[in-house]
Amino acid sequence: MATMKSVQTGPVNAIDIVEVERPVPGPKDVLIRIRACGICGTDTFFLHIGGAPFGPDGSMVSIPLGHEPAGEIVEVGAEVEDLKVGDRVVVNPQAAPSGIIGCGGRFGALAEYLLIENAEIGRSVAVFPGTVPFDVAALNEPMAVARHCVNRSGAEPADKVVIFGAGPIGLGAAIWLKLRGVQHVTVADVIPERLETALAVGADAVINSAEENVTERLTELHGHAANALGQPRPDTDIYIDAAGVAAVINTTVESAKWGAKLVMVAVQKKSDAVDLGGMLRSELTLIASQGYPTEIFEVTPELVEHHERFAKLISHRVPFGDAKHAFELALTPGAAEKVVVTFDDER
Rank of each mutant, 00 (worst) to 15 (best):
K5Q: 14
K5H: 09
T9A: 00
T9V: 02
P11Y: 09
V12S: 06
N13L: 12
I15P: 06
D16Q: 07
D16H: 02
I17A: 05
G26D: 02
I32L: 10
C40S: 14
L47T: 02
H48W: 02
P53E: 12
P56Y: 08
D57T: 11
L65I: 09
G66V: 10
H67Q: 12
H67R: 12
H67M: 13
H67A: 12
E75S: 06
A78F: 01
A78V: 08
A78I: 00
E81D: 12
E81R: 14
D87I: 11
V90T: 13
A96N: 15
G99Q: 06
A111R: 06
Y113P: 06
E117L: 11
N118C: 01
A119Y: 02
E120N: 02
I121M: 04
G122A: 08
R123L: 05
R123D: 06
V127H: 00
G130Y: 02
P133T: 06
F134K: 02
A138C: 13
M143V: 07
A144I: 08
V145D: 15
H148S: 07
C149V: 11
C149L: 13
V150P: 05
A155V: 09
P157G: 01
A158C: 07
A158V: 13
V161L: 05
P168R: 08
G172W: 11
A174C: 13
A174E: 01
R180F: 05
V182R: 04
H184Y: 13
V185Y: 07
A188N: 09
A188I: 06
P192F: 06
P192L: 10
A198H: 03
A200C: 09
V201I: 09
A203Q: 08
I207T: 04
N208F: 10
A210T: 01
V214C: 01
V214I: 15
T215G: 10
E216V: 11
E220S: 15
G223K: 04
G223S: 08
N227R: 07
A228P: 00
A228N: 14
T236E: 10
D237L: 06
A243P: 01
A243V: 03
G244L: 12
V245Q: 02
A246R: 00
I249W: 05
T252N: 10
E254C: 00
E254R: 07
S255H: 04
K257S: 02
G259L: 09
A260R: 08
V263H: 07
K270T: 15
D272N: 08
D275Y: 05
M279S: 07
I287N: 04
Q290R: 14
G291W: 00
G291D: 05
I296A: 10
P301K: 09
E302W: 06
V304G: 06
E308S: 12
A311E: 15
A311K: 14
K312G: 07
V318K: 11
P319H: 12
D322P: 11
H325R: 13
E328L: 07
L329P: 01
T332R: 02
G334M: 08
G334D: 07
A336I: 05
A336W: 04
E337R: 14
K338R: 13
V339C: 09
D344A: 15
R347N: 11
